[in-house]
Structures are given as C-alpha cells and as structure tokens.
Amino acid sequence: MARLLFALIAGGLFGSGLFISGMTDTTKVQGWLDVFGAWDPTLAFVMGGAMIPMAIAWLVAARLRNSALGTPLPPKSSTTIDRKLILGSLLFGIGWGLAGLCPGPAIASLSFGGPGLWIFVAAMLTGMAVAPFLRTRLDKPVAAE
C-alpha cells in the first residue's frame, strides 16, 4: 500500500509540474524546438529545474542500500550506446517536433486535450505495442548482402 501511495504522490507532482510549467501546451514545446522561428526557452528552465531535486536524489540514493520502502534501487546506468538508443531517439524526436507532445505531457493533458489528443495517445500506445517487434529486428546483426 505504501508503494501505491508514494507512486500516487510522485505521479501527482509530475502531473502538476508538467501542467504548471506549460509543457502541456504544444506551442511551448514546438517553440523550444523552433530555433529558426520564435524560439521559446521555457523548456530549458523546466529541464534545469527538474534536474536539481533529481540530482540530489541520485546523490542520496548512492548512499542507500535500498529505497525507503525496502525495494531495490535501480542498477548503475549502462554506458552502451547502441542503434536502438540512437534510432529510437531520432524517431521520437521527429514525432515530438511534429505534434509538440512527449509521453508525460500527453498523459497529463488527457482531461483537457480533446479528441485530437486522444488520437495521438491511441497512436502512441500502438507504437509502444509495436516496439518490441522492432527491437528484435534491430538486435539482429546486419546481414551481409
């Protein structure tokens, strides 16, 4: 039960932050990416602000064996930069620029985004369901023709 309570608190903080920061407004996200148009720096402040408590949390976590609720902490981060990471991030970035939405803000906008947003979310969930099959293909070594 405690795990569910803290998951709710974490999700509530995340949703509040996305909403208050303006990241649920696609024009602000596309404005950040629009270097050659009316560039909007807000996203940099959101990212910078978010990294402050998160960096402190990682420093605290490094001194702990388990989480406060006794669950294991995440393992050390991997340093492998593979095709999936780069190709996936390229695809994600293009979609992010096109719609001005990434997964967090898309979910945070569910109550007020209207049918257009729901269509985006349905397509996003479909993409997530397809990803494991693409992953298997990308894991295969490139065949020599």
Binding site: I9, L13, F14, G17, L18, F45, V46, G49, P53, A68
Partner: peptide
Amino acid sequence: GGLLIGTGGAVYLLFN
C-alpha cells in the same frame, strides 16, 4: 514546474 517534476522523480526513486 520543473522543480515539481524533479521532486516527483526524487520521490519515485527514493521511496519506490
């Protein structure tokens, strides 16, 4: 908003 997002991440990491 960013500070709230990061605090959410901190709670999820340190508690969950």
